[in-house]
């Protein structure tokens, strides 16, 4: 924010928007558009809906941000969410106390991340291929353990994680904010965050400067897995069932949100605040287009176009930098 006011005062004619300002303007523009088009859009109830609806996307995107920053990618996220959600669900229906089932599910999610990290760092398969393999393998595993059937029949308390409120705020939204704050602190207030950025900028130089790059990579993939399991818990509560085919293709939406937020797909560049804005732009679009009852096919066209326009504006204004 500081940077933006500085540049504007410096030269009144030549605007130098940074990515976050452009995204903020896009978000405000979209909100104004929907508010004009529908009287029910800008109401407290609907804003709560939006925050709750973006929670899954936001939580997974927080992990994906770090993965992209180190120059990797995690395509297994959506499969991991479905997997952990089903694991928790099956354990609960098997009579295991819910809190133990949830812990086991979280461990399973982190374990998947660890396997991704091990393959990338030790075997040396590129992250794109590693996690693509994991995407398919994990989805298959989820179908195998459930036989393709949804898991259901939980105590009412499970709904709390998806549909509950604390002090009038939806629980998924609280969890999302906590995740963003946690990732913010990790990225900008600790040395690990500096290592993450350094690693994405230049892996070899970072390694030679004495940083244990493999350790940092492992940590990032495990965190991605951890956030997936948290998302899995929210999904379990939200749907009150474990759906083996939930969120198929959702990894693309996550990558879209993160890239829309200005994170470079080659690592090292991008800010978490941009990703938060990217997540909300996609969430507001999805919600507003439904409220206007616009056909799904047009929704797909519009969502894709917004991505290209937002990233395109940034490219044009900041071309000189490159």
């Amino acid at each position: 924010m500081k940077a933006e006011t500085k540049t504007e005062t410096k030269s009144s004619f030549q605007f130098k928007f940074n990515q976050e300002v452009i995204l903020l303007l896009v978000l405000i523009g979209v909100i104004i558009f929907f508010s004009i088009m529908s009287p029910t859009f800008l109401t407290g109830g609907n804003l709560i809906n939006i925050i709750r609806q973006v929670a899954l996307l936001g939580i997974i995107a927080a992990g994906m941000t770090m993965v992209l920053l180190i120059g990797g990618i995690d395509l297994s996220v959506a499969s991991n969410v479905a997997f952990t959600s089903v694991v928790m669900g099956m354990l609960i229906t098997a009579g295991i106390p819910p809190w133990i089932a949830i812990i086991v599910g979280i461990i399973a999610g982190v374990f998947v991340g660890a396997v991704n990290g091990l393959i990338v760092t030790r075997v040396g398969i590129p992250a794109l291929i590693t996690t693509l393999g994991m995407l398919t393998m994990l989805r298959g595993t989820t179908f195998v353990i459930t036989g393709g059937y949804p898991v259901f029949g939980f105590p009412e308390s499970i709904r709390f994680f998806g549909n509950g409120y604390l002090l009038g705020i939806p629980v998924p939204a609280i969890i999302m904010v906590a995740v963003f704050v946690g990732v913010y602190i990790l990225l900008y207030k600790t040395y690990i965050g500096r290592h993450i950025y350094a690693l994405g900028g230049n892996l070899e130089a970072t390694r030679l400067s004495g940083i244990n790059t493999k350790k940092v990579q492992m940590l990032v993939y495990m965190l991605s897995g951890f956030f997936c399991s948290i998302a899995g818990l929210i999904l379990l509560g939200r749907l009150n069932s474990g759906q083996p085919n939930a969120l198929q293709g959702f990894e693309l939406e996550v990558v879209t949100a993160v890239v829309l937020g200005g994170v470079s797909i080659f690592g090292g560049q991008g800010k978490l605040i941009g990703v938060v804005l990217g997540v909300f732009i996609l969430g507001v679009l999805a919600n507003g287009l439904v409220i206007l009852n616009i056909n799904e096919f047009y929704q797909m066209v519009i969502s894709g176009a917004v991505l290209l326009v937002a990233v395109g504006i940034d490219r044009i204004y900041n071309r000189k930098k490159d």
Binding site: S38, N49, R238, Q243, V290, E296
Partner: peptide, 25 residues
């Protein structure tokens, strides 16, 4: 018919239905 949207899985349908209910209380 006040809303007609694509949603074949519970998660998408959840969001879509919230939109329906928001727009048409």
């Amino acid at each position: 018919v006040v809303g007609d949207q694509q949603a074949g899985d519970p998660n998408t349908a959840y969001d879509v239905s919230e939109g329906f209910l928001q727009a048409n209380p």
